[in-house]
Design a protein around this nucleic acid. Structure first.
Lengths: 254, 254
DNA sequence: GCTTTTATGATTGACTTCGCGCATAACTAT
DNA sequence: ATAGTTATGCGCGAAGTCAATCATAAAAGC
């Protein structure tokens, strides 16, 4: 009873390190027959610890950047439209901040293909960093900080002080909500970081899909008046219905 | 001719993002038949861009932390012995630096299972950070810096200044070579970083497998006299044969 | 100690995936 | 245009994978 749980934990561990293992190797490493290996795999899959594939199993598919992929699917089309619009704001050679969250990740995806010339991207968004690290034209810098696996970002006091050594030409920020009061976000550390970034950026662009208009979150980020640029797919009607008054010149077309 | 290469690039891209795709989805997303999808997969596998599995393909297995896994296999048993010994030096509640490289990654692996109580791990080693981020008892902090995919570490000027906000109880360092002159490493940025870390650590432990004794590398790190602790599987005979004279009390048993 | 429960490994048959060959379609180059 | 090259889709047999069943071995409970 206990020995089997330990073995399964070991298996989950192995998968965590190897990301993919064919069944044959699972058998070999665990020293069990195919049948038992399959049973272990099935058990772990029930616990949502791994994902089975024909002939083996993977773990990273679930484990890495958890919930990130799911959220990414939500409103993917909208986010890509926003990302494409955001991409146009970027000039060659600029130093650009990329915020955490799926909206900014979508921008990273767009950059990867529609990338301009040389660019310095600074981010606390680990999936985005992984993605862009491939690109020859883009130098990727990760901000320091504590690693929060849930949100796949770096944040905390160290991030805050790390920002101080940067100046950004352009900063793309995400947010959880937008009301007549202004912008909202859910995590206090993230809000503090975003404020620091805005201070150090020549231009700050808040990227926000229409679904977030009219919603609050736990932490207040910015009053409306201080939003330099808002990039959204929300219609002017939607914005004014929520009491959000933004000067036209601050609105970027998606 | 061109259209097929573009499609394969798109496929590689898709895999980069999804890490695993079953054949059926590849067909669907590419809008081609199974046969063509297989051919594309086979082509990309020949280019070492992806790894095929029965029923699909993965990319991260190859792409993420490239060469890291390969190096990890080399002398894995030795590295694990070193890691186990290193682990014993760690006390509860300490702030520990974990260097880049596979030797320190092995230490992270050991920590994951044989973990003590609460611990703060600071590192520029991305694979290690990913691995440890799961652990409830371990707070993982990533140092800021430029992301170098080849070595899977963060380094550069920003890392150097980020170190200044830390103090470490314990620092585990890797190195590429050890001669009668002292320690060597291959990358200048890494050496600078290591020096800064040593300055800010109460105790610095250099972890080094026997294969590296007697080898130089491009950059000089530390003279013998300044090595506080050396953790190695090399025999005293081997060390003295290479002219490496280390006080006994500085030598940690592997 | 003996019974009950649980875990394991082998076997079986249904099903899936694989790569090959071939015919057709698309694309190049002269 | 037209001949040659390359890419594509389908069908096939071979090989691989899967879940279910069953007999046996190991553990657990009383």
């Amino acid at each position: 009873m206990h020995v089997v749980l330990a073995r399964r934990e070991r298996l989950a561990q192995m998968l965590r390190e190897h990301s993919y293992l064919p069944l044959s190797e699972v058998c070999e490493r665990l020293g069990v027959s195919e049948a038992t290996a399959r049973r272990d795999l099935a058990a772990l899959e029930r616990e949502q610890a791994i994902t089975r594939t024909r002939g083996g199993a993977i773990s990273e598919y679930n484990r890495r950047f958890p919930s990130f992929r799911d959220r990414l699917e939500l409103g993917a089309a909208v986010k890509q439209r926003l990302a494409a619009a955001a991409c146009k704001q970027i000039r060659s050679g600029q130093v650009v901040w990329l915020d955490g969250g799926t909206t900014c990740y979508a921008l990273a995806q767009t950059l990867l293909t529609a990338a301009p010339t040389a660019l310095t991207v600074v981010t606390n968004n680990l999936p985005a960093a992984e993605l862009l690290a491939d690109h020859e034209q883009i130098a990727v810098h990760l901000l320091g900080g504590q690693y929060f696996r849930r949100s796949s970002i770096l944040a905390g006091a160290n991030s805050l002080s790390a920002v101080k050594s940067w100046r950004f030409d352009l900063a793309f920020l995400g947010a959880e909500g937008l009301t007549h009061e202004g912008l909202w976000n859910s995590v206090v550390d993230v809000v503090a970081l975003q404020r620091a970034i805005i201070q150090r950026a020549d231009e700050a662009i808040v990227c926000l899909d229409a679904a977030k208009v009219g919603h609050r979150a736990a932490e207040f980020l910015l009053p409306l008046a201080e939003i330099q640029h808002l990039l959204t797919d929300a219609l002017p009607v939607t914005l004014s219905a929520a009491g959000v008054k933004i000067p036209k010149k601050a609105l970027l077309a998606a």
